[in-house]
Deep mutational scan, measured.
Amino acid sequence: KKTSWTEEEDRIIYQAHKRLGNRWAEIAKLLPGRTDNAIKNHWNSTMRRKVEQEGYLQESSK
């Protein structure tokens, strides 16, 4: 079943993607209940745009 993505999950994906790049299977290990494919789709459909537009979460990672 599809549940919506939480801010916490987005944060984990964002940090992991910065470190690992497009290694979705590795990132998926950090998110129980999410598949690598689901994460990749979420990144491509939602997060990548956010990151590019806003420099997503930069201000809170100090």
Rank of each mutant, 00 (worst) to 15 (best):
residue 20 L to S: 02
residue 31 L to T: 05
residue 50 K to Y: 03
residue 41 N to E: 14
residue 34 R to Q: 03
residue 25 A to I: 06
residue 27 I to C: 03
residue 44 N to A: 11
residue 10 D to L: 06
residue 47 M to G: 06
residue 38 A to C: 13
residue 61 S to M: 12
residue 48 R to S: 11
residue 59 E to M: 11
residue 50 K to A: 06
residue 40 K to T: 01
residue 35 T to P: 04
residue 33 G to V: 04
residue 60 S to D: 11
residue 33 G to C: 08
residue 27 I to N: 00
residue 53 Q to F: 06
residue 59 E to Y: 04
residue 21 G to N: 04
residue 10 D to M: 04
residue 2 K to R: 11
residue 42 H to L: 02
residue 54 E to P: 10
residue 28 A to P: 01
residue 40 K to A: 12
residue 32 P to L: 04
residue 6 T to I: 02
residue 53 Q to P: 07
residue 30 L to N: 05
residue 2 K to L: 10
residue 8 E to D: 09
residue 9 E to K: 00
residue 36 D to G: 04
residue 7 E to L: 14
residue 1 K to F: 06
residue 45 S to R: 12
residue 5 W to T: 03
residue 46 T to G: 11
residue 28 A to W: 01
residue 60 S to Y: 07
residue 60 S to W: 07
residue 6 T to E: 04
residue 45 S to P: 02
residue 3 T to G: 10
residue 46 T to I: 13
residue 46 T to E: 14
residue 4 S to R: 14
residue 49 R to P: 15
residue 46 T to Y: 14
residue 11 R to D: 06
residue 48 R to L: 09
residue 52 E to A: 12
residue 49 R to N: 11
residue 56 Y to P: 14
residue 2 K to F: 05
residue 14 Y to S: 12
residue 49 R to I: 09
residue 31 L to W: 00
residue 50 K to E: 08
residue 45 S to E: 13
residue 62 K to A: 15
residue 41 N to W: 07
residue 5 W to D: 01
residue 60 S to K: 09
residue 46 T to L: 12
residue 51 V to F: 10
residue 43 W to A: 01
residue 21 G to L: 02
residue 48 R to N: 07
residue 61 S to C: 10
residue 54 E to T: 12
residue 25 A to W: 06
residue 44 N to Y: 08
residue 25 A to F: 10
residue 25 A to L: 07
residue 3 T to F: 09
residue 13 I to M: 08
residue 21 G to R: 04
residue 30 L to I: 04
residue 58 Q to A: 14
residue 27 I to R: 01
residue 36 D to N: 03
residue 51 V to P: 07
residue 33 G to Y: 06
residue 26 E to S: 05
residue 47 M to N: 08
residue 21 G to W: 02
residue 3 T to M: 15
residue 51 V to T: 13
residue 14 Y to M: 13
residue 27 I to L: 04
residue 39 I to D: 00
residue 10 D to K: 05
residue 58 Q to I: 08
residue 62 K to I: 12
residue 50 K to F: 05
residue 46 T to D: 13
residue 3 T to W: 05
residue 47 M to F: 12
residue 35 T to L: 04
residue 1 K to M: 12
residue 38 A to H: 06
residue 1 K to V: 09
residue 37 N to K: 06
residue 54 E to D: 11
residue 47 M to P: 04
residue 24 W to M: 01
residue 30 L to F: 04
residue 6 T to L: 03
residue 61 S to V: 15
residue 10 D to H: 01
residue 50 K to S: 11
residue 29 K to L: 14
residue 8 E to Q: 14
residue 49 R to S: 12
residue 32 P to K: 10
residue 24 W to T: 02
residue 49 R to A: 14
residue 44 N to W: 01
residue 46 T to F: 07
residue 3 T to N: 08
residue 46 T to W: 10
residue 40 K to S: 08
residue 60 S to G: 14
residue 57 L to R: 12
residue 50 K to I: 11
residue 62 K to C: 05
residue 48 R to M: 15
residue 10 D to P: 01
residue 59 E to A: 10
residue 37 N to R: 06
residue 3 T to R: 06
residue 59 E to C: 05
residue 59 E to G: 11
residue 37 N to W: 08
residue 40 K to I: 08
residue 43 W to L: 03
residue 35 T to Y: 03
residue 24 W to S: 02
residue 38 A to K: 06
residue 46 T to V: 13
residue 45 S to C: 11
residue 40 K to R: 15
residue 53 Q to W: 05
residue 11 R to H: 07
residue 28 A to V: 04
residue 37 N to T: 14
residue 41 N to R: 09
residue 30 L to H: 08
residue 41 N to A: 14
residue 56 Y to D: 12
residue 45 S to K: 11
residue 57 L to G: 10
residue 12 I to L: 07
residue 57 L to E: 13
residue 6 T to C: 04
residue 62 K to N: 08
residue 21 G to F: 00
residue 28 A to Q: 11
residue 29 K to E: 13
residue 46 T to M: 14
residue 2 K to W: 07
residue 34 R to F: 01
